[in-house]
């Protein structure tokens, strides 16, 4: 596969959320505001790309019996780097994201890509796969948070777009709304992309 094909497959064709239903917990938890989703998305893109690159670089020396431990160590290290960076440079966002940055470690997408792709492919391909998968994840987060923030707060990225006449929908601020929106998104994409293709 070319780099472009790897990227497009990871980001859209085999999108980890709408196709593989991975990383749902954080997709539901941080999508009440677009800014939170963007920062979370950037954190996952960075962690995925760097973890994939590192795991791929050392794949020929990693003993099979301890590969999962090594992968977890690498992923956890990059997540802590993101956490420290946010605490030092973007403390307000770090506070809002709370425990979710640390929980990137438990995001199934990271271990999934490390095991399925990075441990078997060259470094550059793994890096591109990490960027693509992370971007696909961030895209879904932003789509969900766009709807939730718009109807829940009347704003986009914190800027009010619906005037005083707008009555905020409280359900959109609460976590269950993310379930409905994600379900709708998966249904639309399945109907108009995957099934149409068949």
């Amino acid at each position: 596969m070319t780099k472009k094909e790897i990227f497009l497959t990871a980001a859209f064709k085999e999108n980890s959320i709408w196709r593989q239903i991975l990383g749902i917990c954080s997709a539901l938890a941080v999508t009440n505001l677009m800014l939170n989703s963007l920062i979370m998305g950037l954190g996952v893109i960075f962690t995925l790309a760097m973890a994939n690159l590192t795991i791929s670089l050392i794949r020929n020396w990693t003993p099979r019996s301890i590969r999962m431990m090594v992968q977890t160590l690498i992923i956890a290290s990059y997540v802590i780097i993101v956490d420290i960076f946010l605490k030092a440079n973007l403390p307000e966002i770090s506070k809002q994201l709370g425990p979710y940055v640390g929980l990137i470690i438990t995001n199934c997408i990271l271990m999934g890509r490390a095991e399925a792709f990075a441990s078997q492919n060259p470094p550059l391909d793994s890096f591109v796969d990490g960027i693509g998968t992370g971007l696909g994840y961030a895209l879904v987060l932003l789509l969900i948070s766009f709807v939730r923030e718009l109807f829940g707060f009347g704003s986009i990225f914190g800027f009010t777009v619906l005037g005083d006449w707008w009555i905020n929908w409280n359900i959109m601020v609460m976590a269950p709304s993310a379930f409905f929106i994600l379900a709708l998104l998966i249904w639309i994409i399945n109907t108009y992309y995957y099934k149409a293709k068949v």
């Binding site: 990693t62 099979r64 301890i66 160590l73 780097i81 420290i84």
Partner: peptide, 22 residues
Amino acid sequence: KDSFWFPIVFMLIMVIFFAGIL
């Protein structure tokens, strides 16, 4: 890679390297 000591030494090096960066 299949020796008894290699995985232990490898893991140790990885831990020291990443703990150092952090």
